[in-house]
Write a protein that binds this DNA or RNA. Structure first.
Lengths: 156, 156
DNA sequence: CCTTTATTGCGCATACTGCTCAGAGCAGGG
DNA sequence: CCCTGCTCTGAGCAGTATGCGCAATAAAGG
């Protein structure tokens, strides 16, 4: 879907002031309320706004450690079956099939470095994963920063 | 912060029905409206709910390619200066300092595989990065799946 | 047992939402 | 040049939610 600058401004407004009402936004942007409504509806319908939900932050409730694990899977099972098995583990936040030496990459949260070991053991215990190699995130500079990209896509 | 099962149920409700009102949620959970309000306020204040904003999805507006780039940086600059330079590039969605062979890991979005090359060139052109090695996400099975972890943390 | 904190139920004024509708502006096709 | 389709606009109205305050009750902790 194509987005324009008004779309980007709307998303930015609702991102910066999450208590913004549609009416208030329309006043600030000097457009009709129905326009803001329509733009939001369209972006949600097209998936440009993928979700608009309270995002729990594991760091804030006892899981300060983040690691990226590169997994070599049991080829008998296939990627989908393995990702399904991984989805049963709450500490696994994200799973991609990737190019390169490994088959899958998983983002994993843990209570501590030693707790990460526990989670990795759970992953290995599924028998879906043959080998894993992890990289720990020592410091997260930023993440989920998609707004600048939306604005870049909106520019003419 | 400690979360209990009511907290998790509240987050789940607002995640599954994003048009849920606080009043409606209180009716469904059979608690007072003020309680739901108080729990939400507390979780937002403590960062358990990190953000509650419209999340743009790059895949939906022309950036279907996702890659994870492992960067070796120019040691003269330091991690923070480099991450700041990377933050100026809208295609860079996420940056972590990581353990292992590389210094930083960046999540990058692009319009296509060849467009990814363009983005990597921009990254290298900052002179902040000495070497990069990328892994392309061929298939995203799931991501941002933090709710199960919150529920696990809420269980007694 | 007492103090503190959380929850509850209630009311009220204000504000927002969802919905509808007719008219205006604009671009593209015939 | 005129039609057609699309979006934006401004307006209204009923229904609903919100923010706020308050006093009573329940639960938790020392």
């Amino acid at each position: 879907m194509r987005v324009d600058e008004l779309d980007a401004k709307i998303v930015r407004l609702f991102t910066e002031e999450q208590r913004m009402s549609v009416l208030e936004a329309s006043r600030i942007l000097k457009v009709a309320r129905a326009t803001v409504q329509a733009r939001l509806d369209r972006m949600i319908a097209n998936g440009v706004i993928a979700q608009w939900v309270p995002q729990p932050e594991p760091r804030a409730f006892g899981f300060p450690v983040v690691a990226f694990c590169f997994l070599t899977i049991n080829q008998d099972l296939g990627h989908d079956a393995v990702s399904k098995a991984l989805a049963a583990i709450p500490e696994v936040i994200e799973v991609h099939t990737v190019s390169g030496d490994s088959d899958l990459m998983a983002r994993v949260a843990a209570r501590s470095n030693s707790d990460l070991q526990r989670v990795l053991d759970i992953i290995m215990a599924t028998k879906a994963v043959v080998r894993s190699s992890s990289v720990i995130a020592l410091n997260t500079h930023f993440e989920g920063r998609t707004l600048p990209l939306l604005e870049a896509a909106a520019r003419p």
